[in-house]
Design a protein around this nucleic acid. Sequence first.
RNA 1: GCGGUGGUAGUUCAGUUGGUUAGAAUACCGCCCUGUCACGGCGGGGGUCGCGAGUUCGAGUCUCGUCCACCGCGCCA
Length: 413
Amino acid sequence: MRTHYCTDLDEKSVGEEVTLAGWVNSYRDHGGVIFIDLRDKSGLIQLVCDPADNEKAHKVASEIRDEFVLIAKGKVRKRGEGLENPRLKTGKIEVVVDDLKIENRSEPMPFTLGDPNVGEDIRLKYRYLDLRQKEMFETFKLRSKAAIAARNLLDSLGFLEVETPILTKSTPEGARDYLVPSRVHNGEFYALPQSPQLFKQLLMVSGFDRYFQIAKCFRDEDLRADRQPEFTQIDVEMSFCDQEDVMRVAEELLKAIFNACGREIEIPFSRITYKESMEKYGNDRPDLRFGLEMVDVIDLFENCDSPIFAEIAQYKKLNRIKALKVPGGDKAFSRKIIKELESFVAKFGAKGLAYIQVKEEGLKGPILKFLSDDAIETMKSRLDLQVGDIVFFGAGDRKTVWDYMGRLRTEVA
RNA sequence: GCGGUGGUAGUUCAGUUGGUUAGAAUACCGCCCUGUCACGGCGGGGGUCGCGAGUUCGAGUCUCGUCCACCGCGCCA
């Protein structure tokens, strides 16, 4: 029935009789000629219904509204001079319709496709409409490609794909289990797996050696913008291996997945120790797309005139005083923004947020008066301060300082 | 569980200090329009202002309660 997808056609198709099927993306009724942008999974093409060409098709076309489902038979024609649409992949051609069938009519749309401001609740309510959008289809396609690439790569490395049960016994980890009542065992419940670890030992001791699964995981915890209660995890397990083996498999896997999605990445990845990551970035999954490394300055406060800072500087193992220089930050951050950053870090246990501004006329900030001239000079060179910079300071026990300074780092980035 | 923000037309939003008949864009309906591609022109319909109380001569607007949504914290590897 259908002979082509919309974007299969191009200038080479001119003159061909084709049958297309799809949805009305938009229509323009000029009273005489009617234009229809027809959409299928491949993209758009313009249909033309001119009463001079075919009166019957034009009459059908005059009833058309957005999102009607059509089957259109017609001939591919090159568009005239100046009538081309460079924004369309098929913009140099159009299809002159000589037989138009309305397969299905559509109610008016409850929301505008492609409008990025439409709330997610309404999009989910009309999921079948939402999924018509190209971006939605591309997302599914990307996911499919990633999953297939992961399977192929792991298969090539000798991993066996397994599936483990969903209805299982609760294995108390950190997260709450989702529970499913059992009909057979009255009053008892199955738990849905938080992750598929439960069956690891069973397979490993049985000598399966290497296996993986692309597994659904369930955690009955509150959501975040980037966190769902139900998600998919690639679980890879291997026997008789060391850290290096595990990292190599992970790198190969990520390379294969990114490659399948059209991105080249370099392996091996750069590696830093846990300690270095915590000291410079304040967490164990640092965002390395920007610098903004925190710098240790605890030694400079050792004999300073502030009892609070001096006290903290006494215990170098447990405490930290970290400086975070934001180049050009003095100009970029208004008083108000700095206030907001202060209350931002306060949420994570910061007692305050000291800072030093680097002005034309010199350094400015309330903590300068506590520091010796020597310490200030050392600070200048250690942080390589330039006019226009701002430096934030976090002081206290190391876990707290790492946490809020690390969060501050990504917040200001 | 806690905090912040929001809820007004199908959708996205505006609505002044509490004051006449609650607006715009888009969508929808009707008429007109033969080269548009976000087509255009004219006209029209469409509202439990989340819900419930309260203050007031008068509430979309103020107060309290409640429900829902989003964002964050707690929680969550």
